[in-house]
Design a protein around this nucleic acid. Structure first.
Lengths: 404, 404
DNA sequence: CCCACTTCGGACTTTTCGTGGACAAAGTAC
DNA sequence: GTACTTTGTCCACGAAAAGTCCGAAGTGGG
């Protein structure tokens, strides 16, 4: 090796490192950046031969399907390539405080079948999980693609590695209990655990909605949670930890005892449980946040005022987060967030009053893209993101090739 | 291509996608993960031959040097590889409201020479930059390694692509002025622009201090800024935008007019400029935050109380950010932050009072790792991060090889 | 002190992988 | 119908990485 000077000041770094493996090509097709072999060649810089080889592997594996021809541009028309959304299914399970949703999704995140069932608040895994497994077994009957994975969300902190809940004060009896064994009877696909607010946040990253690369996702339900997307990536929750929006101490709540044991938390003046309490104290009939929201949507003035008040108080704290992270969009989900206009009226009020003008100038508020099943979609997205990542696809193809 | 089923449930994805290019190997040596060819082979999975080839290229380019032998483990001792921190130098320039720091650093971020000079508050680029260029020329005399790049930080928002300041209300006359031309006389290396708080934040990512993967960095100086490190990556500031800590509206400041034109900003009760104003109103002699800090360190009770009060008010807002992002560490820098114990006393008080216990349980406060020159180190780190990234190193090696 | 044993690193051989060109296919433009 | 354009496959060539062999340089036991 002869001595070569490395220092040549003007060096242009290649734009983005494009994945040139089969998994990378699949990602380009899935994202819509490429629809033909020629597109893939242009996008990756690979030769036609190399592209053909990888595409053949993906088609052979059933992940890509040859669609109809594409309109010609003056020469031979390209054979369209499409991602085979039915190559497998994924399972989403959203365990909540008072209900569980179970759904089966295709690889594009569209729900095929699903159901929702209420359960007693405070039920342990031994009550809830066998029922979930049974429902899952029923839902999977008549579905013949293999199950790629199961995504399960829980309120509270989870340890994704050990696949257990580690700190869920809301869910008594769940901490440290391995959940995979409950499901083996219905399905043996790998289990991915996540937090409920993380799932909601991830569902916003999914879907076709271009919300921007920096987004805050507020979950306004019985409790209050917040998730962060920065530079197009999920920031919080990757380690099962979610933003503690609800347990920030705020002004004018010093006297109020929170369910977390502290005094003066935001939750005591803004969480769903607190608003329901106030509604009941006023003589109304309500057991759950959804009752409160239902009353408000029916025009009940007290319920409407409570929702707006909650939005206002949450907005006071949210303003700091908005200032901190400069999001293009604030997504409002959860049960209270489903009364979007009503809830965000109060929220806008205080965010615009408290955040810097330069930050709020082009700030948008948006409802959760997937509505009531956003959390469930997030669970499915978690599985798809992991199991269909370029690295995972390449690993599977290697394994398949080694076996043959 | 025969039909191969792609679906084989148990697939283990390779841990982390390790860069196997020459630049990737250099990164492994720089980070201390590998010190010999054998280490590199184990870390990347590359064969000894491939490793040898890349190492030869890096040694030939002068980026790696063969050090002494390594203690044997029973066989032939490995030839140690070390990153050549003198293969080039980088220049840091921190332009502040009232002073500029200029420094020349080796590739490990250690300062070789540097100087600091005050200038009139409100000076434009035509006053400041020629002086900076002249000082830089002097500093570079007698330094023979080539200059890899120049990192320059400004208060306010910058456009790193166009290399101009775009919204710096504090720096009159700087917006939209290209800064590179001022420096061409002293040095023609590529210029990288960043925000001052981003630079401070980046300096914490540098250095050997293991602060954790999630860190909040507060700059408490004349103004108030905040930077975010999440999952070990700089979140804010990559687009030249920094967290607007100082212009969040807070309680009990409704009457006070902020320098941004709004009323009730945190800055009116906690920024350095506001504290100096109060000190002067009390009859003391002070022109700059550093005067305030000096008085406080000398034991002046009023100055001490003002610093503590500022920390307390900043902590009130910071608590929300801490709740949101679960940092392991809060770094406090800036002029006021340099009176660390005094300043964080007030800050801890309100953060611990307002953030959730689960979040503050193992929260640490730390002073800026590089003290008064942290911003300057951050400028150097910016250049090193960019120009010594695997992609950039590979590009340079390719360019050198093509030339030969 | 000598000799097995271990580990490292370089030279050589083999294999894999991607490129580039030739060629067939399938359309458009005139 | 013919020329032209673009797509996709097949195949030979070349580069790059893996695998193999061997000498070098240490440790430790007899």
């Amino acid at each position: 090796m002869d001595k070569v000077p490395w220092f040549h000041p003007p060096v242009s770094i290649s734009p983005g490192p494009v994945e040139t493996t089969a998994g990378g090509l699949l990602a380009l097709v899935r994202s819509g950046e490429a629809a033909t072999r020629a597109d893939l060649g242009r996008a990756t810089g690979l030769s036609r031969s190399a592209v053909s080889q990888r595409v053949a592997a993906l088609v052979g594996a059933g992940l890509l399907v040859e669609g109809g021809g594409v309109a010609s541009t003056g020469g031979r028309p390209a054979g369209a390539l499409a991602f085979n959304v039915d190559a497998a299914v994924v399972v989403g399970i959203a365990v909540g405080r008072s209900r569980t949703q179970v759904g089966v999704f295709d690889l594009e995140g569209r729900e095929i079948v699903g159901d929702t069932r209420d359960h007693e608040v405070g039920s342990g895994p031994d009550e809830v999980m066998p029922d979930v497994a049974e429902r899952l077994r029923t839902l999977l009957e008549g579905i013949e693609p293999p199950v790629l994975g199961i995504g399960l969300s829980l309120p509270g902190t989870v340890d994704p590695e050990r696949r257990v809940s580690v700190d869920a004060p809301v869910m008594k009896g769940w901490d440290g209990v391995p959940l995979a064994p409950y499901l083996t009877g219905a399905c043996t696909a790998p289990l991915h655990l996540t937090n409920d607010t993380s799932a909601l946040t991830r569902s916003e990253l999914f879907g076709p909605a271009p919300l921007g690369s920096d987004v805050l996702v507020v979950k306004a339900s019985t409790g209050l949670g917040i998730g962060v997307i920065a530079d197009g990536r999920l920031v919080n929750g990757s380690r099962g930890v979610t933003g503690e929006l609800g347990h920030t101490r705020v002004e004018g709540a010093d006297e109020l005892l929170c369910r977390c044991g502290a005094h003066g938390c935001l939750e005591t003046v803004a969480a769903g449980w607190a608003m329901v309490n106030r509604l009941v104290e006023g003589g109304a009939e309500a057991r759950h946040v959804r009752d409160l929201v239902g009353l408000a949507l029916d025009g009940d003035p007290v319920a409407r005022s409570l929702l707006r008040e909650s939005g206002r108080r949450v907005g006071e704290v949210l303003a700091v987060a908005v200032n901190l992270l400069h999001p293009q969009t604030v997504v409002v989900g959860g049960d209270m967030g489903s009364a979007f206009d009503l809830y965000t009226a109060g929220m806008r009020e205080s965010v615009y009053a408290r955040a810097a003008g330069s930050v709020t100038r082009d700030l948008r508020f948006a409802p959760a893209a997937h509505g009531d099943s956003a959390g469930l979609v997030g669970c499915a997205a978690l599985v798809i993101d992991h199991e269909l990542s370029p690295a995972a696809v390449d690993a599977r193809l290697r394994a398949a090739r080694a076996e043959a």
